[in-house]
Amino acid sequence: MKKYLFIVLALSGAVGLISWGFKGHRAVATIAQRHLTSNTAYVVSAYLGGQPMDAVSTWADENRDPKTAAWHYINLPLGLNREQFVKTVQESEGTVYTAILKMEATLKDPAASVAQKNEALKYLIHFVGDAHQPMHVSRKEDKGGNTIQLRLNGKGTNLHSLWDSKLIDQEGLSQDDMVRTYDKATPAEIKKWQNDSPMEWLWESYQVTSELYANAKPGQTIDDAYYQKYIPVIRKRVDQAGIRLAGELNKLFNNANAPARSDKADKSNMLKNNATKGIAVGPVDINDVAKYIGKTIYVTAKAYSAKDIGSMVLVNLGAAYPDQLLTLALKGDAKALGAQLEGKMITVSGEVIDFKGKPEIIVTKPEQITVK
């Protein structure tokens, strides 16, 4: 099977096309998570079965199907102007561009099942990252730069691998440090980037690729000057991917309802996570809640303030706004509890999500909260 997969990928020009590597894709997803609206974060988590976005960001590479191998990139000749580029992309089939449109269509489709939307969401998280890796918008004849051999730190590599992960590895940052360093977009940049279409994302990658091909010399040694010139480009492309992924998801889910998840399914998922990922259910100290993003916990703390904003009641735990340590977003049947909690010690259970850099739990069932 492995031999067959290699042959299929080689023939399609996709050898080694795993964009941004493990750290890069996870950084894209984590940046996106930080820019989701509260409701979007809740709906995304529900469709992913409680898994955080970064955990599924490499699923499309790890579960590569020969039938979808070409969905990760697009082959284009060099020298196209903007009009020629758009025409060529629109006329191409089975590419990262058409895959993104297909996944978004599935996520919008009310007739699509939860399982179909789970898969489409995992693909979309990955493909938005792929679209921003310049070497995924490149030439077929060199397999996206895979056959252009280079040297880095005294070892052989290639142009594609260099941009997948080698330059990121050279930087030496952890995933958390990458996110803190890369996620620097201004409000104006965020607004502009999220208004750009997937065609614009690819055009940007194509422009970078054109420069890389023009300057690439087979056998050349990648020196510090090259690194210093292009690491800012990588930082920007990863940040743009995360910001734009958040923008697409907010458009899809900001006003959407989460799929129903049975108590049995929730419990099964929690136990599975606990067994495989060492997730602490609780009790969790209120000061440590931010460490449990993407995990289901229970925590006891004082409710300092509550505010009804129409669609939900926001309750601040651990301190009053804006210094709260945890925000509860009470929705649905749980919304009526909001007026009863202020000034009381409560225990709440639920999945911790990241909302604009602060931990939050969406509470939809009254039984998730116990008043002490």
Results as ranks from 00 to 15, higher is better:
W59N: 11
A275E: 08
N75F: 12
E248V: 15
E119V: 14
A334Q: 07
V315C: 04
S12Q: 13
N75T: 10
E342S: 13
K108T: 06
V313G: 01
M53S: 10
K331R: 15
Q133W: 06
V281R: 09
Q324L: 10
N81A: 05
I286Y: 00
Y230Q: 13
Q340F: 05
S311Y: 11
I243W: 12
K277T: 06
E62T: 14
T95V: 01
K166F: 15
Y123A: 15
L249G: 00
Q207S: 06
S210T: 11
V281E: 07
E93R: 13
D266W: 13
Q33G: 15
G16D: 02
L150A: 01
S174M: 02
A55Q: 14
A339N: 14
T364E: 13
G49P: 06
G21K: 11
V315S: 02
I353N: 02
K2G: 14
K264H: 09
T68Y: 14
I286G: 01
E171G: 09
V313Q: 00
L80P: 10
V86G: 03
H25C: 05
H160M: 03
S205H: 00
V8S: 13
G154T: 06
A32D: 05
Y42S: 15
K358V: 10
Y213D: 02
Q84H: 02
T157H: 00
R237D: 12
I222S: 11
I222T: 05
G145P: 03
V114M: 09
A336Q: 15
K307D: 03
S161T: 11
A69C: 07
G129R: 04
G278L: 04
G318F: 01
D142Q: 04
G282I: 01
M178T: 08
S268Y: 08
V352R: 02
Q240P: 14
S92Q: 09
G156Y: 12
R34E: 08
A275V: 03
L48K: 06
M199V: 12
T147H: 13
Y213A: 04
A225Y: 13
K331T: 12
V15T: 11
A241E: 03
T95A: 01
L101F: 00
V233C: 09
K335E: 04
M53L: 12
A320D: 13
V43Y: 06
T181Y: 15
A303D: 01
A120P: 01
K272P: 02
D333M: 10
M345I: 15
A214D: 14
A27E: 07
K229C: 06
Q324E: 11
D223A: 15
S262D: 06
Y226F: 08
T40M: 08
N287C: 12
V86T: 08
I148D: 09
S138L: 13
A32W: 03
K166T: 12
A290I: 08
N81L: 02
I222Q: 08
D164Y: 09
